[in-house]
Design a binder for these strands. Structure first.
Lengths: 227, 227
DNA sequence: TAATAACTCAAACGTTCGTATGAATCATAC
DNA sequence: GTATGATTCATACGAACGTTTGAGTTATTA
């Protein structure tokens, strides 16, 4: 394997495990068994290395999402695409890639999960912007499938789905029950997110069931003085 | 305001915005208008400062959660607590605090959102462990309300709820539609998470609707070669 | 007012960081 | 075989980092 690839793999792993700022180029080159100067030779800078880590996997991933949605839409003709299919096109590709890419894919998804919660400036922002294009595309599909939802509420619910996905990616290695296990078609974690997201997206919008009418609410909130 | 409090506020803000490793003590002391050495005088180290930032707000927050759940449980007697009440006890306190604590609270919640996706070692791990106690306590309440769910699936769904909450906390300042607006009772973002989570938790467990049976799935997955 | 404690300050410590340099090594083509 | 371009290497640079120090200042107590 070439030095360039070993550097990408090592950076992917260490950025995912320790974060961008907390990972030094010396850590990376040590893990990759490469010289310190090789990073600046092959990539130019630490930030450019991070962008290269993203580019390697993110482009095919997002293309797969959009192609699958396109296929579903042309299949549906003038009708809106079923909700389950939109969710599948959005969520299955990262799980499939994780399975296909092996260890490196799991590191990458953990890194992506980190970025969602803690953007790295400015390199991480290009990733966010790229993903935002995908999100907008899916939002219009969701809007057709769930026309009763307001735009704001739809955006919020999409973020809840994104959150579940990113959280699973970031924590899969820490909690065994969140660790993806196999192909998307049989992965219980993906199935769990899909079931959860499908029910959540379909929930009625204005149902003022909260706060629960109960004396305990008032009691707990009033006693909640900081000690 | 004392130097110690100004340091806590500044650290809270900068850790939340830029992350722990990417924030220097010089940044913090400059924002707090304090001397560089004051951090080590008042807290001992940078890591200890982070733990102090957590301690100030996390303890009352988690206590409020548990007290509210206790109140609901004693109110319900031998019956399981309603799902909506469990979710309220879990999710409303951070929103209430965010409203109550103002700008500092929003910084803090953003920081918490970051930690969920990118644990800071070792200081951040004490936070995770502390939260895990709360999560276990709520898991048993959820288990009584949703006895048909397996333990693993219940754990996964709890993580989906946690994800939505953390993601909202971390991104509230970037996406206006995710920005909490007011008291928990009237906050549309909290209502959105609650509705979404309630429907998601109640989704049937084994419903092999995925992958959607469609020719587009096979077409898209087979064409998804990396170019 | 004098003594003691609490706190602030400027300056410096040693370390580690990302980056740059120029020579050495390797591969390839004539 | 030798010249040329690509890559690797040890080394060094200046900057920024967390931490420490000891003198200076302020507040508290008797």
């Amino acid at each position: 394997m070439s030095t360039k690839q070993r550097l990408l793999d090592a950076a992917e792993q260490l950025f995912a495990e320790n974060g961008f700022a907390a990972t030094s180029l010396r850590d990376i080159t040590a893990l990759a068994e490469a010289n310190l100067a090789s990073v600046n030779y092959h990539f130019g800078s630490k930030e450019a290395l991070l962008e290269a880590v993203f580019d390697r996997r993110l482009r095919p991933l997002n293309r797969e999402r959009l192609e699958m949605l396109d296929a579903f839409e042309s299949e549906a003709g003038d009708n809106p695409v079923e909700l389950s299919k939109i969710l599948w096109a959005f969520l299955a590709p990262p799980f499939r890639r994780m399975y296909e890419w092996g260890e490196g894919g799991r590191h990458f998804q953990q890194l992506v999960g980190r970025i969602y919660a803690a953007p790295i400036r400015p390199a991480g922002e290009t990733f966010i912007k790229q993903f935002e294009l995908v999100r907008i595309r899916f939002q219009s599909a969701f809007h057709q499938a769930l026309p009763h939802l307001s735009t704001d509420e739809l955006t919020r619910r999409m973020h809840h789905v994104i959150a579940a996905m990113a959280h699973t990616m970031a924590w899969g290695r820490a909690f065994c029950c969140l660790q993806p296990t196999g192909r998307p078609e049989s992965d219980v974690v993906l199935q769990s997110i899909l079931s959860f997201a499908m029910a959540g997206m379909r929930a009625p919008e204005c149902q003022p069931i909260f706060p629960p009418s109960s004396p305990a609410v008032a009691a707990a909130t009033s006693s909640g003085t900081d000690r």
